[in-house]
Amino acid sequence: MLELRRLRLLLELSQRGTIAAVAAALSYSPSTVSQQLALLEREAGVALTEADGRRLRLTDAGHALAAHAARALALDEEARVALASATATPVVRLAVMPTAAEHLVPPALTLLAADAHPVRVTMAELPPEVALDELAARGFDLVVAEQYPGHARPLREGIERTLLGHDPIRIAVPADDPATSIADLADRAWALEPEGAAVRAWSVQQCRAAGFEPDVRFDATDLVAHARLVAAGHAVALLPDLALVGGTEGMRLLDLPGSPVREVFAATRVSSRGAAAVVRVRQALADAFAALPTPARP
């Protein structure tokens, strides 16, 4: 019989790529991971990994067994969900992007605190790209992420998305800036997310469509930090309304061509989507999003 914990290690290796990454994610030593994978290989009776330079890669049999491992772990999670009703206080591990951590999670927790059924929520602030990987690897139960127009995030087998709401995106400029459109901002200092983020690529495309390459002087994953740079008169930025819930003092908001919006969504594994605690947290996030005020436009 193949041992479920070892199957998880194989699946993690297929997702994370290295023994060291698997060990760090599961709080094991690299030698323990290697030993357990060697035991799994003996149980399977076929080579599951092979050397690729200084790394290990999965063989065809390894990839096939990793796919079966994903299904076995999903069934295990479904069984645990079915038994979770007997748990006094279920735990939901939440990973969110910075703007959600700032303006969405606090009101959602307030709603949950008034619920007759208690749930313990833990939260980590992570970029969507990282959080969605961790969700697939069972590091979290629920992720709040976004996708920008024309930049849909990859669809993953076993992951389900629920739309929380649409978030308009506008140009934020200092209050005394005379610009009336994005085309007027070719010579301004810009605040954007770091290279590699989906929103960075989208924002650069907006500038190029207006005829210029942005002068990016400030890289920050936190869009609230972008807003503060704008309000202090040091930058311009493309900001969704969720980043402006704290107020628009010191800045003006201009419309972008086509009035684009980003989608804010909650992602869960299909195997845990029916868990009562996950459903309650997801609904609280949706209700909190719906109640957010629209930023004033000076």
Score class of each variant (00 low, 15 high):
174 P>K: 10
176 D>P: 12
43 E>F: 07
76 D>S: 14
145 A>R: 07
80 R>Y: 01
233 G>N: 10
1 M>D: 06
280 R>S: 10
56 L>E: 08
66 A>P: 10
20 A>Q: 13
141 D>R: 03
78 E>C: 12
184 D>V: 03
210 A>C: 02
188 R>H: 11
2 L>K: 02
297 R>E: 13
277 A>F: 04
72 A>D: 11
287 D>W: 13
202 W>H: 15
89 T>I: 02
118 P>T: 15
228 R>Y: 01
216 V>A: 00
85 S>T: 11
218 F>E: 07
122 T>N: 06
44 A>Q: 13
62 G>H: 06
4 L>Q: 12
23 A>T: 03
42 R>F: 14
221 T>E: 12
192 L>T: 03
107 P>E: 12
264 V>C: 10
280 R>K: 06
203 S>P: 11
178 P>R: 06
31 S>W: 01
259 S>K: 14
54 R>C: 07
33 V>K: 09
62 G>F: 07
7 L>C: 09
140 F>T: 09
256 L>I: 11
94 L>E: 10
37 L>N: 15
108 A>D: 12
24 A>W: 01
22 V>T: 07
122 T>P: 05
80 R>C: 04
93 R>Q: 11
186 A>R: 02
79 A>F: 02
32 T>P: 03
144 V>K: 03
231 A>H: 03
204 V>G: 07
194 P>R: 08
50 E>L: 08
176 D>N: 14
153 R>G: 07
295 P>R: 05
119 V>M: 05
231 A>P: 05
51 A>G: 05
293 P>L: 12
160 E>W: 11
87 T>C: 06
202 W>D: 13
252 R>S: 08
76 D>H: 08
97 M>S: 05
134 E>P: 01
266 A>V: 03
277 A>C: 07
122 T>Q: 07
141 D>S: 07
281 V>W: 06
123 M>L: 09
225 A>G: 00
210 A>K: 00
284 A>N: 15
227 A>L: 00
78 E>S: 13
253 L>H: 06
160 E>A: 15
170 R>W: 02
235 A>W: 01
42 R>P: 10
52 D>L: 11
193 E>G: 04
216 V>K: 00
43 E>N: 09
265 F>R: 03
263 E>Y: 12
296 A>Y: 03
95 A>I: 10
88 A>F: 02
63 H>P: 08
21 A>F: 01
160 E>T: 15
261 V>R: 14
18 T>M: 10
295 P>S: 09
153 R>M: 09
252 R>Q: 14
3 E>R: 04
22 V>F: 05
256 L>E: 13
135 L>T: 04
217 R>G: 14
28 Y>L: 14
206 Q>A: 09
177 D>A: 12
227 A>C: 01
297 R>S: 12
218 F>V: 09
97 M>G: 07
114 A>D: 04
15 Q>G: 12
124 A>W: 08
200 R>Y: 14
69 A>H: 13
154 P>E: 05
271 S>D: 15
243 A>Y: 00
286 A>D: 12
279 V>S: 09
24 A>V: 02
14 S>V: 10
36 Q>D: 15
188 R>V: 09
192 L>A: 06
126 L>A: 08
109 L>I: 06
28 Y>H: 12
288 A>L: 14
274 G>C: 09
